[in-house]
Simulated assay, not measured.
Amino acid sequence: MSSSSFTSSYINQEEDGVLMEKNDDEAVSEEPELENRENVEEPRVGMTFNNIDDIVVYYREYGKQLGFPVRKRTSQKGDEGELKYVTISCGREGKYKSKSSNVLKPHPSIKIGCKARVRAGIILDGRWQINSIKLDHNHDMSPTKARYFRCHRTISSDMKRRIELNDTAGIRLNKSYNSLVVEAGGHENISFLEKDCRNYIENVRRLQLGEGDATAIQTYFLNMQVQNSNFFYAIDLDQDGRLRNVFWADARSRAAYKEFGDVVTFDTTYLTNKYDMPFAPFVGVNHHGQSILLGCGLISSEDTDAFIWLFKSWLTCMHEHAPRGIITDHEKCH
């Protein structure tokens, strides 16, 4: 099986197969045959791929063709930390446990215990091979609704740029989205929903500080560093040069960490009022049982990339000396 026909544009999307806001596919009992559908070969034992990303792309394309969501379920590493096995399953796999406080209004979910999946492992020549397959699903398929699944939704960099330009020009988001739909020849030919545009542009707006604010932050940090060379700060910019994440720690925090940095607490439960950017403090405890600040961060969003950048910046500030333990809100920082 050659994987060269599958691009990497579907990689790095969310691994969640949950259908947002509407479970439209569950209302569909019969699906018409689609014309000009790409013919993605049915998975079979022995198929080989150049790397794990190619397998994920392939199975997502297969799921999109048949009409079911896909998620990377589990992976297993070898003794030296190298990835050796992976399971990619139907997004309806597993059983959902609602966390809603109202038992009469549970949060919607599409998880119904579907067992369809493929398992693959790395072979001697470095390629990946499908080792086992379960093709049978316990639910109806919905090819025409496949684009609603999160794993099949993506906004290209060109589309993002156009959406941003239209928003800057004052064009309402629904009109901007409708123009893209018309240009593409219909909703079925566009790979994202209006909700995705709205989420994206809201995140962009959050990153756009007021006029002079980003400059004011940098000027303040530079002045603090002039007053004390042990003042540390780091600024993360996006591709367009906009301020995305910041971290800072004064000389007292860095000195305190050397003495009381064995265990650190970290959470992002605080939000600034003006920009709605999560405030992320690193806090320790001194020998008097008092809380001490060991560094602060403002991050654009609570996602993996932001947390990785923040923790790397903090470790750099603390001369790569990691604490023995970190106490955090696991639901916030996963």
Rank of each mutant, 00 (worst) to 15 (best):
S3P: 13
S9E: 11
S9M: 02
Y10E: 03
L19A: 11
A27I: 06
V28I: 03
E31R: 02
E31I: 06
E35V: 08
E35Q: 15
V40P: 08
V40W: 03
E41Y: 07
P43Y: 01
V45G: 06
F49D: 09
N51W: 00
D53Q: 09
D54Y: 08
V56E: 07
K64V: 00
L66P: 11
G67E: 06
S75E: 11
K77M: 05
L83R: 04
V86F: 03
S89A: 14
C90V: 01
R92I: 00
P106I: 05
K115E: 13
I122E: 12
D125N: 15
K134C: 10
T144H: 09
S176R: 05
S176D: 13
S179C: 00
V182Q: 14
G210V: 03
I217Q: 05
F221A: 12
M224N: 07
S229L: 03
F231L: 08
F232A: 10
D240I: 02
N245H: 05
F247C: 15
A251L: 04
R252K: 12
A256W: 05
F266P: 10
L271P: 08
P281R: 10
D303A: 13
S313R: 03
W314G: 10
L315P: 03
L315I: 02
A322C: 06
I327K: 14
